[in-house]
Design a protein around this nucleic acid. Structure first.
Lengths: 354, 354
DNA sequence: CTTGTTCTTGTTATCGGTAACAGCTAGAAT
DNA sequence: ATTCTAGCTGTTACCGATAACAAGAACAAG
């Protein structure tokens, strides 16, 4: 029973088309007529039927976002930034979590593509698995990859320099005097592979041997970090410093240490990556590698909207790379450079600034 | 250029209607024909146009969720639970953050109602502001309130017992020997009002006077907790124990304390509410009042889906109230009852169980 | 007084589905 | 053989918008 264009048209004794034109600010309409229509629309509380509009125009004003998990503050922050850009541009957000399941990702992506104007995807596929996306892109799918990329895929992307992330984290541990440095690596995704590469490069740069037994598969989840660390502690051969592939896995590892009576930051140094919110408020504040998650989400949203509006430099796909930087806190055993609360002033300033 | 029903129909030499029936598992269709159609649909990679379907059936298979902020882990957890129920039932999630802005909430809700099958709302309106929602409900809007309710509104809701929340938190502080107990209250929402009421009841039950100067307006945001506590510390008259309206504001207050050289949990006890993720991993693990956020989101989703399917006991609105319980950690100065890591085992078990 | 032009409005068809009803076929009942 | 019925398939109209084109009015130019 909602009000339709036809209702307004009948009320005013004009055609549906005239009403439609008034509402969409079409140039070919008398200014006075437009006012009459808009007034009536307000009065009758008209809300356009988005489904009908989408059917007719093939534009839904919906952006889909496919991420591993909302409960991961890393992705929550990216998602929020996407929303901050998308909402004012008239787009709403269709959200979908994959829980790091590749099959699920693919089916959701195919379903979402047809009901949105475009997708922002943080893919859990291995970077070589480009078949499906390559085909979708060729068929005109509009999508932007965020956080994680794929090999040789002509698709806009916003990531950080993950090799540098690995180098920064590992070099830091080396500079603190550690020599036996382990790595909790993720899965087969681009992010994992590149951070591992950075880890190797840092070792090589300092003439340290690369010891495969010090690299453990782990995954990106907090629970996986916990299990991997628990097993490592039980099995023995634990290094005196660890670079974990991301913050949640680092947190999981820290909890496993504490549960085993090992003090993170004192007995074993640990560095994460991603700089999730609250990382500085933890019992052992987490040393990590940071890049702007807000920037990441905003850039991705802007790229996608440009694609949707057909303003993209069609030629080649853009790839925005955000620079990472080290954030030293306590979990690596180093003296933190910033006092508690110091960073908070900055965050507050940023929040009130918007 | 996507494949349509008509394409399949042409390919097979049948009518669109037959194809439609096959795809929707309509009973009035020959089993063999159905198979032929489904096979062709698979082969041609048919994806139904959801906009067309929504237009024809007035069902979008979209659920809207309107919450204050995704970056608040409290709401992220609720949202995730909603998704866990909604996805298998065939619904996708349209998300919208209000950032605690009432005007924004109202406009978003009106816009979302028309493009979804129903809404899950955590309203930031004061509980007396029922005018708009009352009207929407009368017009047949399908919605469920979550976390926060409104007065005398015939609308299904899932909340906790917020008076009890206030009582539990405050009584705990009293039992620890504190006598000057302050409260950082939120805004005018139902949650704030009820938790304040619980605070008063607990004081009265222990024959302590209610001192208005010990109750400060604050809001629900971390930044607001920070500012309120900062001002309080600067202005003097700080109590020796504080019940903060929710966890984020408690965290903000704790940071303000640390920035001012005051040790939370030792110099000033503090208790929050909501039991957000990571609350136990903080430098000063946060004592809080907890109820199941997963349950909250799942119940809300189930209620809404029943409403959508018209299976709801139309008579009166359901109101599910989840029981709160105290979670003692360090921020109140008490000896924590659970060791670090103990809770983690439970969480892990729950995670792997699904 | 035509004719043409500009402005504005209306008509018709269409997007891709589905509901409601009509129609056809084959076998059962009479 | 005829009628009925069940079971399946096709036709038509419609959901609520918009695109493309047609058409009417007003006014200027020839």
């Amino acid at each position: 029973m909602p009000v339709t264009l036809a209702d307004i048209a009948r009320e005013l004794g004009v055609s549906k088309m005239t009403v439609s034109r008034a509402i969409n600010n079409h140039p070919l309409i008398n200014a006075e007529t437009r006012e009459r229509v808009l007034e009536a629309a307000r009065r009758m509380n008209y809300q356009p039927n988005q489904h009908a509009r989408a059917l007719a125009t093939n534009r839904s004003y919906l952006i889909g976002i496919v991420i591993p998990d909302l409960m991961n503050l890393y992705f929550a922050e990216v998602t929020r930034a996407v929303e901050v850009v998308a909402r004012p541009a008239g787009f709403q957000l269709l959200i979908c979590s994959t829980y790091e399941d590749a099959t699920r990702e693919l089916s959701e992506v195919e379903a979402l593509l047809h009901r949105t104007d475009g997708l922002i995807i943080s893919s859990v596929l291995p970077p070589t698995e480009t078949r499906v996306y390559r085909k979708l892109l060729k068929d005109g799918a509009r999508m932007v990859l965020v956080d994680r990329t794929m090999n040789n895929l002509r698709c806009p992307a916003v990531t950080t320099d993950n090799v540098e992330v690995g180098r920064l984290a590992t070099s830091h541990l080396i500079q603190l005097g550690h020599r036996r440095i382990g790595h909790l690596r993720g899965d087969g995704s681009s992010v994992s592979v590149e951070r591992l590469e950075g880890y190797k490069q840092a070792l090589a740069a300092h003439h340290l041997p690369y010891d495969e037994s010090l690299v453990r598969a782990c995954g990106f989840l907090e629970s996986e970090g916990y299990l991997a660390m628990q097993a490592w502690l039980k099995g023995g051969g634990v290094p005196d410093a660890i670079f974990a592939v991301n913050d949640p896995s680092a947190l999981g590892a820290m909890q496993a240490m504490e549960a085993a009576g090992v003090r993170p930051g004192r007995d074993i140094a640990i560095v994460g990556a991603g700089n999730i919110h609250y990382g500085d408020m933890l019992r052992v504040p987490l040393t990590t590698v940071s890049w702007s998650l807000g920037e990441m989400g905003e850039q991705a949203a802007r790229l996608l909207i440009r694609l949707i509006n057909g303003e993209s430099p069609a030629g080649r796909a853009l790839h925005v790379v955000l620079p990472p930087e080290l954030v030293v806190r306590n979990s690596c055993g180093a003296k933190p450079v910033a006092r508690a609360g110091a960073r908070y002033a900055a965050r507050l300033a940023a929040e009130s600034g918007k």
